[in-house]
Design a protein around this nucleic acid. Structure first.
Lengths: 141, 141
DNA sequence: CTCCATGCAAACTTTTTGCAGCACC
DNA sequence: GGTGCTGCAAAAAGTTTGCATGGAG
């Protein structure tokens, strides 16, 4: 908590009542809430807060690295035909998605890391980084 | 292709011009297109097709297992505070998300499976299946 | 006092749905 | 010929943005 206060000062973020409560609500949450879910929770303590403030606050906190977005941050759904189990590499620069062969990163190899109390149906790895094309453009410039 | 025709008959799906063209466009695509991207491509061959037909067709093809959706299928963005690198388990029944410790499935262990031409910044595993709670409810009934 | 953050409303994007007509089987 | 699919339009859901006000520093 106090670490958050200090970090805000360092980065020039204003420490508003709303921002603090959104941060606290997410730090306390164990269920990976959506913006709407956080809005409902924070509203109990700050009845006048608006949903767009929650969105804007989450955006700020994400930019500053305090919080993370679960799963892929893609604006729209993407589809593929490849019926073989495989993984994906997402380029953070060009947004392109490339298939990654499962090789020894198969389902069984991954699923064994979970407790036996889970019934795992599928497993999927998503890598993020720079694809060969963007990497080449970077080194050239 | 002919496999698709046969599979449609087996499952009682009507083999319309539109459905076939959406299927072909996705089978040919290498870039994991969105519904809108597919719409633009199919429109060149079937100028009267509508975007909602593309959506409906993609939904049917996904249900039948012909195609897959890339990444997490979540209606809204979900956030988390946990700053430690970790993975996620998504329950297909209750939609709940649980953290999975990275253990030996750390970034380095995963990234080594990619060609060196990629610059990998992060790696994340997403498991899907039944969580312990839903599994228990299933066995009881 | 200054400027960033907030709240309100409205726009925007992506996806879904109701309905009438058409096409596949 | 009946049923499911299509196209149109409108709605729904999630998220973003413009603008005037208010509160933090």
């Amino acid at each position: 908590m106090s670490g958050f206060v200090l970090a805000c000062k360092e980065r020039g973020l204003r420490l508003t009542h709303q921002r603090l409560e959104v941060y606290r609500a997410l730090a306390k949450a164990k269920d990976h809430p959506s913006a709407e879910m956080l809005y409902q929770r924070v509203r109990k303590r700050v009845p006048t807060i608006s949903l767009d403030t929650v969105y804007r606050t989450l955006g700020s906190l994400e930019e500053e690295g305090f919080i993370a977005r679960v799963g892929t941050a893609m604006s729209s759904a993407r589809f593929e035909f490849n019926p073989e189990p495989h993984h994906h590499f997402v380029c953070v620069r060009c947004g392109g998605i490339r298939d990654v062969e499962a090789h020894s990163l198969g389902h069984d190899a991954l699923a064994k890391y979970l407790p036996k109390s889970y019934h795992v149906l599928s497993s999927h790895v998503e890598f993020r980084g720079l694809c060969p094309d963007c990497l080449e453009k970077t080194s050239k410039s």
